[in-house]
Write a protein that binds this DNA or RNA. Structure first.
Lengths: 215, 215
DNA sequence: CCCGAAGGCTATCGATTGATAGCCTTCGGG
DNA sequence: CCCGAAGGCTATCAATCGATAGCCTTCGGG
């Protein structure tokens, strides 16, 4: 084993902290709140995390790391850009919805501007830049309408946050349904030729299945 | 005059508080921070607002009141639903972008769940419900694809927040350009017949002009 | 059998929080 | 001319914040 499996307490801290951050915000949640939700005393938190913001950083890292890997794979892959973008959006949103954490409190400006989380803010900027790059490929190839890639990336981000917001704290039982709804919504709007939608959806589904088999 | 014009200090408190809430969040902003940005001492704030959350409530009220009036007018109006929805989205986003306040920190869950802001949370729920109603009209009339109205409403909300986030603290010099971009994005995705887009855009523009003349 | 690390606990710290008390100046209406 | 409201100010409060010190128990490897 390269790493010891994390103590269950550490995981419970992350889960409960993420829920409290979602409801009351990072600054509105005290370390005593978190400890109380976990069922331990406040100083015991510091046996697992050196500071409060380290809890937040761990949550962001667990979300951002895989997301960056997914978007990079989508940018580097070949095939139609519309299919790659659709499959990425479905996979990304499904992954976020499947996390045991409540990510609603993680991506607010007030939290990503903390100086201690500069590394996570940079990761998020890279994620956004790579997403915009993928959109730009589609625009340049003539697959998409001539829309600013950064605006489309922002739209994807906004839709993801909105879906997460609707869902609430529990991991989704069926994450691919809302995820596909978002991907369809985005591609209906960006596709230069809307008649391609059925074909794009089908190709995205088989691409997703191929990725899942590859693990 | 039915009401005395608000003292400039009160307005400056609202402006500076909104910017700080956007950057650090409501809970992350102290009353001393706000007072310092305004250039007064912390206890002087309480000559204008009885509590900290009253500042937040005033900001939300100034945004939600007009927004509710706009969506209700759009639901009650007659004409094609696509045109009404397009014009509402353009007008709503342009209005938010024209505010002297930075609204980025106002619509986070952590703030709307405060028990002291229950009234504002209800207003926002009504705004969302009315928006979904308008979308539902379009779906039932066959103008829109068969998408869940609540999802489309959420998408509009998410896109609005994303545009506001990109823009930053200053009121927009040209609010209608990004506003129209969002409205176009949404309607391209919802319109059952995408070929109607040019016609919808044109009718929306003349409708907006008529509303502006009416004041 | 023991010993040290892991992970709980209580007690406590200094800093910061939102809010109040009370004083002083400005200024417009009677 | 004055007087009271408006709106600043200083000083201060109790509560709460994140974090540290130090003690005790559990438990797995040698």
């Amino acid at each position: 084993m390269t790493s010891a499996r994390p103590a269950p307490t550490r995981l419970r801290i992350l889960i409960e902290a993420s829920r409290l951050f979602a409801i009351r915000g990072y600054h509105g949640t005290s370390t005593r709140d978190i400890a109380g939700a976990v069922g331990i005393q406040q100083p015991s938190l510091y046996k697992h995390f050196a500071t409060k913001h380290e809890i937040l950083a761990a949550l962001l890292d667990e979300d951002l790391g895989p997301a960056l890997a997914r978007i990079r794979a989508a940018v580097a892959a070949d095939g139609q850009v519309a299919v790659r973008l659709h499959a990425f959006v479905v996979g990304d949103i499904a992954a976020v919805l499947s996390l045991p954490y409540d990510v609603r409190g993680l991506y607010n400006d007030d939290v990503l501007q903390l100086p201690e989380l500069a590394a996570q803010a940079r990761s998020r900027a890279r994620l956004h830049a790579a997403t915009a790059d993928l959109v730009r490929l589609g625009v340049e190839a003539g697959e998409f309408v001539a829309e600013e890639p950064e605006f489309v990336q922002g739209a994807i981000t906004g839709l993801l946050l909105e879906v997460v917001r609707e869902q609430g704290p529990e991991p989704a039982a069926d994450p691919r349904t809302p995820a596909t709804r978002v991907a369809d919504f985005v591609l209906r709007s960006v596709l230069a030729d809307p008649r391609r939608m059925p074909e794009v959806r089908a190709a995205s589904a088989t691409l997703a299945a191929r990725i899942e088999r590859a693990g």
